[in-house]
């Protein structure tokens, strides 16, 4: 697995902004599981991510992460197609911070604003992602690998080695 450069300020701003977030895991039987993210924090050194999720719809993925520590997270900005995927093998479920419910609510509004600019109504997104604050969980992992997935010739290229 390719090593991954730390997330710089610009990338940090992107992945913490109103961007589509999805996660995948793998069950012991080899069947993948998946869930949508509802917010993201980047560690100050840029080497770890904490992704917020709504626990109930992510139950199977959370089970896999507890068991294997492996996770994949993709971020994609609909307006630009900018897409990046990070992988971790030490993922664990960590306690949420006090401002995480607000962070998740802000995320949904920022993402809705991004989509509104493209003509998509926001109520569907809010219905999909707005969660009861008690149901928010966080997964933290250090970046084991990162890839560009923006459509085009560079799709699949690693984000670079350790800095």
């Amino acid at each position: 697995m390719a090593a991954c450069a730390p997330i710089d300020a610009e990338l940090s701003r992107l992945v913490s902004g109103g961007i589509s977030i999805s996660l995948a895991s793998c069950s012991p039987g080899g069947v993948p599981n998946m869930a949508r993210g509802c917010g993201c924090r980047v560690a100050p050194d840029g080497r770890a991510l904490t992704v917020l999720l709504v626990a109930t719809p992510a139950a199977a993925l959370l089970d896999d992460v507890r068991r294997s520590g492996r996770v994949a997270v993709v971020f994609s900005q609909p307006s630009t197609h900018f897409t990046v995927q990070f992988k971790g093998s030490d993922a664990r479920i960590v306690p949420t911070e006090a401002d995480d419910p607000q962070r998740a609510a802000d995320y949904v509004e920022r993402f809705a604003a991004e989509l509104a600019a493209l003509g998509y109504p926001g109520d569907v997104l809010r219905t999909l992602l707005l969660a009861c604050p008690d149901d928010i969980v966080a997964i933290r992992f250090t970046l084991a690998a990162g890839y560009s997935q923006t459509p085009g010739p560079q799709a699949g290229a690693p984000l670079g080695g350790p800095a």
């Binding site: 697995m1 999805s22 793998c26 080899g30 993948p32 998946m34 492996r70 994949a72 993709v74 995927q85």
Partner: peptide
């Protein structure tokens, strides 16, 4: 969402 033979997950739009 897919997984490699060694169980590494992957996700793509």
């Amino acid at each position: 969402a897919t997984a490699s033979a060694d169980g590494t997950p992957n996700i793509a739009y």
